[in-house]
Amino acid sequence: MAVLVQDPIQEAILQVAERIQASYEKGAPCGMILAPCAAVNQKVLENMQSYMSGFEPDIPLHCFYLDQSGLLGIVLSGQKLINTHYASLVLKEFLEQQDLLEGQMAVASFPESGELTEQSLSQLLYMSLQGKGESRDIHLFMNHGLQQGITSILIADPDEVSREFVKLRLEINGYKVEEAKDGSEALEKFEKTMPSLVITELNLPILDGYQLIDKIKRDYAGEGQVIVLTDKQLPKSMDRAFELGASDYVTKPFSISELEWRIKKLISRVG
């Protein structure tokens, strides 16, 4: 993999690595936020520091600005992902008020985001450099390496809330996730990406869940496992789903940790 090795980046990596190492030595996790920004001077840095201290009074922040790459960075020692994520919201609000933000922000916390290596750090920096542009979203950086046994997951659900949630959570846990709003889109994406796991609702428009399961099992036998995630609780529905070849059945309201555990169990059983 070709990594842009320029001197500024190398130096940035060194700087950042130093700080994180300092925190690591104390045995605590370390959070990191990178944001592409316009010209930031010392005064701005100071304002930012005081603004953020307003929200996080006890947390030590190390702010720095990499002139060459135009990246503003904050290292939060001792902070896990949740607080780092929250801090990024605060930071974004500040930057938008000052109209300084120029692209997507990257948020990470080690070790939750993966192993702390030079490669992962450079990937993180690369990702934030790539983030320059129109979109202003906050992105979570995850570098778990591919989950064993799963190439990708396809989630099919017309309900946005649960679909987005499952996609987000699985992506955070390192899975690659495709989504589909209805049965025919699900079948298309299945044929295109051949995921090893499909999580589907039963009540899909156009092509319903049962037919989707049937088609997958019939035409692509052995390729995809199917977990049904639905709010239908009738035993008839369960029976029918299993008869058609579903591997598991989870009812809504559901707990995401239970779903993840079932996914792991399924993989270990099959793989």
Binding site: F55, I82, F165, I256
Partner: peptide, 23 residues
Amino acid sequence: FKDYLTYVQANLDGMEPLRVPPW
């Protein structure tokens, strides 16, 4: 609020409570 809702969804598990939007 997209970012804030991402924060909520991403951190729904775990021990720490969810915090209100910083604005």
